[in-house]
Simulated assay, not measured.
Amino acid sequence: MKHSLNVSGNYATVSLDGKIYAHDAGIIRDELLEAIEQGVKDIRFDLSKLNYIDSSGLGVLVTVHKRTIEKNGRLVLTGVQGMAAEILKRTRLDKVLHIE
């Protein structure tokens, strides 16, 4: 899995490419929680190149979603398609997370 995190002020964009498993999810979670502690409130995930996400990856989305709300910000998912879209629907996270 490849990912990139770009931070500009209180805004961050995360691009995910490939498949997210537990190890990758931990790295992304730690980077994002650190960014939130440093003032990032709004986070946009680009999932257009994501092929698969496991429960650990879903946990990251939920954790980051909760933290952004605590900071009066928000998490937005873009480019959701394929297996990622199906998993979000099956877990009903598509009803909780903001998807564009």
Rank of each mutant, 00 (worst) to 15 (best):
R29E: 10
K66L: 01
I53N: 07
R92H: 06
T78N: 13
L16C: 13
A25S: 14
H3T: 05
Y21S: 13
A84G: 00
S56F: 06
D46E: 12
E100I: 06
E100M: 03
E37V: 08
G9I: 10
R44S: 01
Y52P: 12
F45K: 07
I43E: 05
I99K: 11
V96W: 01
I43R: 04
G18F: 01
K66I: 01
L75M: 10
I28C: 08
G59W: 01
H23Y: 12
D46L: 00
L88M: 11
L97H: 03
E86T: 06
Y21N: 08
D54C: 04
G79P: 14
F45R: 13
D94Q: 08
G82M: 03
R44V: 14
V96S: 01
V76D: 13
S8T: 08
V80I: 01
Y52C: 08
I87T: 02
F45D: 10
L88K: 09
R29G: 04
I20H: 03
L5G: 09
V64E: 03
E100F: 01
H65Q: 10
D30F: 09
S15A: 09
G39M: 05
L97Y: 12
T13I: 09
S8I: 08
K71L: 07
E70A: 02
V96D: 01
G18S: 03
E37D: 14
D54K: 10
A35C: 04
T63D: 05
G26R: 02
L58R: 00
E100T: 00
A22Q: 15
S15C: 09
L32F: 08
D46Y: 07
N72S: 15
E86D: 06
G79W: 04
I27A: 11
G59N: 07
I20P: 13
G26F: 00
Q81P: 09
D54N: 12
I27C: 09
S48T: 08
T68S: 09
I43S: 10
R44L: 06
V40A: 02
A22F: 13
L88C: 13
K71D: 10
D46C: 02
A35G: 09
I43N: 02
I27W: 04
A85W: 13
E70D: 14
D17E: 15
R44I: 11
R92M: 00
L77G: 10
Y11A: 15
R90W: 00
G9M: 06
V96T: 11
V80C: 05
I69A: 08
D24G: 09
K89I: 09
R90F: 03
L16G: 15
K41M: 03
I53F: 02
K95Y: 05
